[in-house]
């Protein structure tokens, strides 16, 4: 029997086995049968996660040459280096689904794939590097801890590795904020200004409300997402408010208050028109981020060509050696 008949004939059976695995909290592995929509959804989500790691290097990279001390510079360099590595883990995990690296990068450059909108905001002062580590990495970690239990094996394992490596990212950011808040009035003002600008975009990182989220319901059903956007956002707010209080800076939300009954913080509504604007390409730095990535990719073309040429040259030499 030709293989194609085999697959078509058993689709419903394969689907049933897939559904049973999801229900039993088993991971789906690369060579397993999976519905096309599950595969497509994963490629979308994982590649956008990968793009976010890579584009996320830009706002922080902006400060590597301007860090206030050699120690801070070395730390920032190590952190940005980690983000590049995390992009690699995620691209590679996405490729286990049959997508090619080239197609993923093309989708980014052509604007067909998104990345975390937060990276479309500029990093204006040194305090922004602190706020990014504390809040942006903090929000990413809340999300990624949840994704350690995602249903696709390679994605879940990449998340475990990434969370482990990222444990220093948030702490270094908070330490920068702490140093500024224990400094002079100008430094405290700088820390407050960074919090003012990064707070709301950080909350937006969790995406639209559950009811309005395009992919949420299906992703929850497939256990690609394990907790909803709103649940994760609440978790982030609950952990961040006491951290801001300790720093002695104020979260820019007049509606923020602790609900004694639930133990959770109540917070104001996100400006969803801003969210939409930035997601659809009109944030402060969207064009700059993409143009920079495209330029870096194009500028690196000669390196890729050189490695191919070297490989070809060695292959010829090896063949000659075998023949002689």
């Amino acid at each position: 029997m030709p293989p194609s008949c085999d697959i078509e004939g058993d689709d419903s059976e394969l689907q049933a086995r897939f559904d049973a695995r999801i229900a039993a909290e088993e991971r789906i592995e690369p060579k397993d049968w999976m519905p096309d929509a599950y595969r497509r959804n994963l490629i979308r989500q994982m590649s956008q996660h990968a793009h976010s790691e890579v584009i996320g290097m830009q706002p922080e990279g902006n400060w590597i040459s301007r860090a206030p001390t050699l120690k801070r510079k070395a730390i920032l360099l190590a952190k940005v280096q980690d983000e590049a590595g995390h992009g690699l883990y995620l691209y590679s995990a996405t490729e286990t689904l049959g997508a090619t690296r080239e197609s993923l990068v093309d989708a980014l450059h052509e604007g067909r794939a998104k990345y975390a909108s937060i990276f479309n905001y500029p990093s204006l002062t040194w305090a922004d590097v602190g706020a990014i580590g504390w809040l942006v990495d903090g929000a990413a970690i809340v999300n990624q801890i949840s994704l350690q239990r995602t249903s696709y094996g390679p994605y879940a394992r990449a998340m475990v590795r990434i969370c482990k490596e990222e444990s220093f990212h948030q702490r270094q950011g908070y330490e920068i904020m702490l140093a500024l808040c224990r400094g002079n009035d100008a430094q405290r003002a700088m820390a407050q200004d960074a919090l003012n600008r990064w707070w709301w975009p950080s909350l937006m990182m969790f995406g639209p409300h559950d009811a309005e989220s395009a992919h949420s319901a299906q992703s929850m059903q497939w256990k690609l997402k394990r907790q909803s956007n709103d649940e994760l956002r609440q978790k982030f707010v609950d952990q961040s408010v006491p951290q801001a209080e300790f720093l002695g800076i104020r979260i820019p939300d007049p509606k923020l208050r602790l609900d004694e009954a639930t133990g959770h913080y109540v917070f104001g509504e996100i400006d969803w028109s801003e969210f939409q604007r930035v997601v659809s390409g009109d944030g402060p730095c969207n064009r700059e981020r993409l143009a920079h990535h495209t330029r870096a990719h194009d500028d690196g073309a000669w390196v890729r060509e050189a490695t191919h040429a070297y490989r070809a040259k060695r292959a010829v030499r090896d063949r000659a050696e075998v023949a002689s």
Binding site: A78, F168, Q170, R171, Q239, P242, Q243, F246
Partner: peptide
């Protein structure tokens, strides 16, 4: 020579949690 790659390198007061 790169202990700053580890979370324990950073001093965060005990009162601050979830970091």
């Amino acid at each position: 020579d790169k202990p700053y790659r580890h979370a324990t390198f950073y001093k965060v007061p005990d009162e601050v949690s979830n970091l």
